[in-house]
Write a protein that binds this DNA or RNA. Structure first.
Lengths: 129, 129
DNA sequence: GTATAACATTCGGCAACGCGTATATGATTA
DNA sequence: TAATCATATACGCGTTGCCGAATGTTATAC
């Protein structure tokens, strides 16, 4: 018998799913990344630029976020465009809503988010240089 | 000059606070504990009983949850009664709401919560044997 | 005072994490 | 083909997290 682990809708979420989602949020850098992606789709170079962190650090956290299914990638030739994944549980949905509303008020996140919004807007005109 | 680190209201929350809250949720056992405490106040012996884990394990996770300010204790002679702490940020508030609503539907959590509700009710009549 | 009960803390080991540095891969450009 | 750019992964290392077992602490019971 084949188990369709991809058909998210079919499976009732378990404790492991919850745990995984929260672990995705359990790091300040990843919180910053999720906050930036709340602005829209960004490529790794944008994230590196705004976060001011070494590229491998960002890439590793993105890998972690991919594993926990909190983000998804669009690969366009040699650019990787990341965005928030569509939530697959109530908790996930709630946390994404949290990123988009509750996170405002944390000063460092606010200013970064503004930069992300501007960058997303730029990308609409000129796609990643 | 004295810094009133205790007057929570005064300080605008930072990234570290966010991180701390999420780290509190980043473990399946702690998620289970928070889920149980959503039913009301419980003593350690109740938690040990319902979780079916060794007492030191529960105690250590409770210490962690205290450190992250997600729970608070009432010590009554030789019993320790734990309850969810009053949220001190939007994110915290949102996550507690999440515990009370979004967590329903995870089967293992549901059944444990029912046991917790019953236990809380028992305690109203007969306070911790 | 001794025993016991309810919790908390410590220690030792092991796995997971986060980071810096270096390197690999794959597409693009010269 | 060689060089370069964007991104990912590997390696080594210090840190943190979790667990079981043992021990501490405080209060009640005998």
């Amino acid at each position: 018998m084949i188990s369709f682990t991809h058909s998210v809708k079919a499976r009732t979420p378990g404790l492991e799913d919850l745990d995984s989602v929260f672990k995705g949020f359990a790091d300040p850098t990843r919180i910053r990344i999720l906050n930036l992606l709340a602005a829209g789709e960004l490529c790794v170079c944008d994230l590196v630029d705004i976060l001011g962190l070494p590229q491998p650090a960002v890439s590793r956290h993105l890998a972690y976020l991919r594993k926990t299914k909190l983000v998804r990638v669009n690969r366009d030739s040699n650019f990787a465009h990341y965005r928030l994944a569509d939530p697959n549980s109530d908790v996930h949905r709630n946390l994404i809503a949290c990123v988009k509303s509750c996170f405002t008020g944390i000063r460092s996140l606010d200013s970064e988010r503004r930069r992300a919004v501007a960058r997303v807007k730029d990308r609409e005109k000129e796609p990643c240089r």
